[in-house]
Lab assay of single mutants.
Amino acid sequence: MQRVNMIMAESPGLITICLLGYLLSAECTVFLDHENANKILNRPKRYNSGKLEEFVQGNLERECMEEKCSFEEAREVFENTERTTEFWKQYVDGDQCESNPCLNGGSCKDDINSYECWCPFGFEGKNCELDVTCNIKNGRCEQFCKNSADNKVVCSCTEGYRLAENQKSCEPAVPFPCGRVSVSQTSKLTRAETVFPDVDYVNSTEAETILDNITQSTQSFNDFTRVVGGEDAKPGQFPWQVVLNGKVDAFCGGSIVNEKWIVTAAHCVETGVKITVVAGEHNIEETEHTEQKRNVIRIIPHHNYNAAINKYNHDIALLELDEPLVLNSYVTPICIADKEYTNIFLKFGSGYVSGWGRVFHKGRSALVLQYLRVPLVDRATCLRSTKFTIYNNMFCAGFHEGGRDSCQGDSGGPHVTEVEGTSFLTGIISWGEECAMKGKYGIYTKVSRYVNWIKEKTKLT
């Protein structure tokens, strides 16, 4: 034993070699072989497995989906700052455009905790909710729209109204504003409101030439003092309507412009014939205590009207009353817009006519005020429907199939267009061939041609 100890002390290297040989010859039971080890760690190889990531292109799944990435790591994937920024906006807080917040056709661009709407022409605001041009839906104005110097929408209202708090709607500024039905039992019968379409306001006024200088022999019209197929109006439903009495009662109609003036057809009036105007009328054979009678003290036909040349060209006249009318729910003026808007309103496509005229061709006159909704007829169809001249200051309205029309005794009465609950004068009943005849239409004086003249002559002093 002493000898062994001496050998170990003198030859430590020998001992180490012996131990190493023993270990190498022993069977290893701690580690699995290569094949079995792979069965336990069965993990798919990654895209760049075996390579240094710093030297390969980034992978979106590896960089940002398996674990949260930084902007720089995302930049490695896209290799483009702009594309990385677009991805980053949604990656950080989701897609803010998912709810489609942009209105009126706006395009949404996502941002971090926010979004941006790219608005089409005519709109602005956070969600493109603000109209900035009158060309689109009248700028959301209830009545009139004008573009300011910086191309912003400025709404306005006709006389007797003021802008509401929203700067879009119009509200009454006087007790009985024009064009409004205020009798409670008839307010439910107000005709369907007309909503502004998209309009090209630059070209809204037709490029028409008034044929002022045409000389033409007097034409022989049949029954051209021209509501057939209409309905009984309720008291106060058309408070701007008046009836004219002269040699015979209810020979023509008219509309209240203001307390002192009536507008009617020029062919209705004769110099030297006494005319009485009755406002607030409903049943011409009954006294309903809503009527107001006034005498006409002055007749002003349009300066281009000449019955000797043509009885229905420039067929418009103004009547001055001896005493002002007292405005109330049964006696209310009709609204008159400017030339541009009167023309736009007419193009809405349908209007209402009213009167006490004959209820059928050569038949009896109506006792109760009649009204009828009539569609506008395109000019080409209008011209083809008659052998008589249709001037540019006239328009056609009615039904091709016949059966409904204005008729004798309705002449001078109103053709009105309702705009968001307020009625505007767009025409004056003038003439036609018979009444409600198939293929024939009622012919009306186009008020847009005469609004400046009306307003100039009827100013209240």
Results as ranks from 00 to 15, higher is better:
Pro197Met: 11
Asn59Arg: 15
Cys119Asn: 02
Ile309Ala: 12
Asp200Cys: 04
Thr386Trp: 07
Arg404Pro: 15
Ala233Leu: 07
Val202Ile: 12
Val419Met: 09
Val257Gly: 01
Thr215Asn: 10
Leu372Gln: 13
Asp232Trp: 12
Asn306Thr: 03
Glu66Lys: 06
Tyr47Cys: 04
Cys157His: 00
Trp453Thr: 01
Asp405Cys: 10
Asn328Glu: 02
Lys51Val: 07
Asn222Cys: 04
Ala173Leu: 08
Asp249Gly: 10
Val248Trp: 08
Trp431Leu: 08
Glu72Trp: 15
Asn283Gln: 09
Ile454Arg: 00
Gly398Thr: 04
Tyr312Trp: 11
Gly442Tyr: 05
Ser448Asp: 13
Arg180His: 10
Lys311Thr: 06
Ile299Thr: 13
Lys39Glu: 14
Lys438Glu: 14
Asn151Lys: 12
Ser255Lys: 00
Gly229His: 07
Ala308Arg: 13
Val77Arg: 14
Glu286His: 10
Leu23Ala: 05
Val153Arg: 06
Lys89His: 11
Val368Gln: 14
Asn5Arg: 09
Phe399Arg: 05
Leu376Phe: 10
Thr461Asp: 14
Leu372Gly: 14
Cys435Lys: 04
Ser182Cys: 03
Thr209Cys: 06
Leu376Arg: 05
Ala233Met: 08
His415Gln: 00
Ser354Cys: 09
Leu376Cys: 02
Cys108Asn: 00
Leu103Met: 13
Asp410Gly: 06
Phe345Tyr: 13
Lys146Glu: 13
Glu129Asp: 05
Ile443Val: 08
Leu383Pro: 03
Trp261His: 02
Thr332Ile: 08
Leu32Asp: 15
Ser114Asp: 11
Ile316Ser: 01
Lys347Ala: 12
Arg3Asn: 09
Ile309Asn: 13
Ile336Thr: 03
Glu320Asn: 02
Ile443Arg: 04
Glu10Asn: 15
Phe251Asp: 03
Leu20Thr: 03
Thr133Glu: 05
Gly398Asp: 03
Leu20His: 02
Cys97Arg: 01
Asp410Gln: 14
Asn42Met: 10
Asp315Thr: 02
Cys170Met: 00
Gly421Asn: 10
Pro177His: 01
Glu159Tyr: 07
Ser423Ile: 05
Lys347Asn: 11
Cys134Met: 02
Phe121Gln: 15
Ile336Asn: 01
Gly280Ser: 02
Ile309Glu: 12
Arg226His: 14
Arg373Asp: 03
Ile334Met: 00
Arg379Thr: 13
Leu425Gln: 03
Lys260Ser: 02
Lys387Ala: 12
Asn295Thr: 10
Gln241Trp: 05
Gly13Val: 13
Val228Glu: 10
Asn328Phe: 01
Lys274Cys: 04
Gln185Phe: 12
Glu434Lys: 14
Pro375Gln: 10
Thr290Cys: 05
Lys438His: 14
Phe78Leu: 14
Gly442Arg: 09
Asn135His: 08
Asn306Asp: 09
Gly412Phe: 07
Glu208Tyr: 13
Asn166Gln: 03
Glu116Phe: 09
Gly105Tyr: 03
Leu24Lys: 03
Thr85Tyr: 05
Arg358Val: 06
Gln370Ser: 12
Gln237Asp: 06
Val154Gly: 05
Pro301Glu: 06
Glu270Ile: 09
His361Val: 12
Ser217Asn: 13
Glu76Ser: 15
Val368Ser: 06
Ala436Tyr: 08
Thr29Leu: 14
Pro101Ser: 02
Phe251Trp: 08
Val243Asp: 01
Pro44Ile: 11
Asn104Trp: 01
Thr381Pro: 05
Glu231Lys: 11
Asn213Trp: 05
Cys155Leu: 00
Val154Ala: 11
Thr215Arg: 10
His400Arg: 14
Gln219Pro: 10
Phe87Asn: 15
Val242Glu: 02
Val181Glu: 07
Ser107His: 11
Lys234Met: 06
Val248Cys: 04
Asn245Lys: 13
Val199Asn: 12
Phe121His: 14
Glu67Pro: 04
Ile428Thr: 02
Cys145Arg: 00
Asp405Tyr: 14
Leu23Ser: 03
Asn343Cys: 03
Tyr312Gln: 07
Tyr330Asn: 05
Val183Asn: 11
Thr426Leu: 02
Cys435Thr: 04
Tyr91Val: 15
Ala380Gly: 12
Glu79Val: 14
Lys440Ile: 03
Lys459Ile: 13
Glu35Leu: 06
Leu369Lys: 15
Ile284Ala: 08
Ala307Ser: 10
Val199Pro: 11
Glu165Leu: 11
Ala37Trp: 04
Tyr91Gly: 15
Ala164Leu: 06
Lys339Pro: 15
Gln219Val: 08
Ser169Gly: 08
Val447Asp: 00
Val326Gln: 14
Arg3Pro: 09
His34Gly: 07
Asn100Lys: 06
Arg140Asn: 14
Lys152Gly: 10
Cys435Pro: 03
Glu82Ile: 06
Ile17Gln: 03
Leu41Glu: 11
Leu383Thr: 15
Leu23Tyr: 07
Glu456Thr: 11
Asn151Arg: 10
Glu418Asn: 13
Lys137Tyr: 06
Val195Cys: 05
Thr81Asn: 11
Asp198Leu: 07
Glu142Tyr: 04
Arg162Gly: 05
Val183Thr: 09
Asn452Thr: 13
Gln370Thr: 06
Ser329His: 07
Tyr305Cys: 00
Phe399Lys: 05
Val195Asp: 13
Asp33Lys: 09
Lys457Glu: 09
Ser25Gly: 09
Thr332Phe: 04
Thr422Ser: 04
Lys347His: 11
Met8Ala: 14
Lys137Asn: 14
Gly409Cys: 12
Phe144Tyr: 07
Asn304Phe: 10
Asn283Glu: 06
Ile297Lys: 11
Leu369Cys: 03
Tyr115Gly: 02
